[in-house]
Amino acid sequence: MTQIGLLILVVLGAIKAYLILTTGVCTSTKKLTGKTVIITGANTGIGKETALDLAKRGARVILACRDPKKAAIAKEDIIRESRNKNVFIRQLDLTSLKSVRKFAADILKSELRLDILINNAGCATIEKKLTEDGLEVQMQSNHFGHFLLTNLLLGNVRIINVSSTAHRWIKKLNLDDLTFERDPSDNKILNIYGITKLCNVLFSKELAKKLEPFGVTVNCLHPGAVKTEIFRNAPTWFQIIAAVCIPLFFKSAKEGAQTSIHLAVADEVANVTGEYFSDCKIAKTSKLAKDLELAKQLWEVSETFVKLKPEERHF
């Protein structure tokens, strides 16, 4: 092996060691017996690992998933590994506002309580297209769908939104073009993904402010670069790069779920709200994500896009 090759191996090894040492782990042993949890996108990846962990803690876990067949397989796995039969499937397609409303109505009718809502589902690098509601598909799946869902289920519920460090890519947010039809610079699939993740942070900030008087907490998080199926719709060239980089530098789904689990169970964050977490601790956001006036304006625009009805408004 040449000296250059050896140096590359040493550098890669050092990077991998650093990633392992800095990966946050939820150390709480708290049980969730008697608690009800909803996790969107819980049939695979981070969502499934989060569901498994919370099921092991005794929670009643609702898997909110678009594909019932895939959800059924995940449910069987979770019940088998957790030995908790209180795992249920409810169909939810975040790219359909009709589906979101039906899901929420069914939950409010069938569930006696709801304690934790984890808005985990998301998509990335999907070709730009509009949903049946006339909204850009990544934007609706990652932001608008969860915005509506959360508003419909508001109550004494701990809310956890899975965002991403990708929000840092975005230096401006044009609230007049959230369908990405005007500004060419925003019309790229990776840029749209970053915008959706910025919206997750801004939504969390504004909702936390609105709910603070009621003692309800809202936080968001960056799970890390995680080996999941989120890039399954990416272009071939992107998947080739990912195939090389993911095994070396990405977390496993179980590692990626740790911060979501931490926010759901840890006593030390029980009264923390409006924060952004990474590796189970509070982290810094971009400057734009701290703009509370922008967060307020995004809320107002989002109400319009999802056609939030007067009876659905809590504020």
Rank of each mutant, 00 (worst) to 15 (best):
L19G: 12
K309S: 13
L294H: 09
D77K: 11
K75L: 13
D186G: 13
G47E: 08
I159W: 02
S28W: 08
S164C: 07
C26E: 08
G24M: 10
C245D: 00
H143N: 02
T259N: 03
K287S: 14
I39D: 04
E300F: 00
A225V: 09
A257G: 00
E49I: 10
N156R: 14
E300G: 00
S260I: 05
E311L: 11
D183M: 07
L94T: 06
L112S: 13
K69A: 15
E136T: 10
N233E: 12
D106A: 12
R101H: 07
S286C: 05
A104S: 11
L292S: 11
L130A: 11
D67N: 15
F144C: 00
F88H: 14
R101L: 04
K287E: 13
G155K: 14
H222L: 07
F147C: 03
H167S: 10
P310N: 08
G256E: 01
E275A: 12
S110R: 12
L21R: 15
I170M: 03
A105W: 01
E81Y: 08
Q258P: 05
V10D: 01
V10W: 06
T273E: 03
G34K: 10
L114W: 07
D267L: 10
A72G: 09
S252P: 02
C65W: 04
A295N: 03
I116W: 08
K309Q: 15
L153N: 04
E127K: 15
Q91N: 13
I261F: 00
A74V: 01
E268H: 12
I46S: 04
R113E: 10
N200S: 13
C199P: 03
L108K: 15
I8L: 15
E312T: 10
V25M: 09
K172G: 07
C199D: 05
W299H: 08
S252V: 01
G58F: 03
T44S: 15
E49V: 07
N174M: 04
I230A: 07
E303D: 14
T125M: 12
K296M: 00
A270N: 12
K254C: 01
A253P: 01
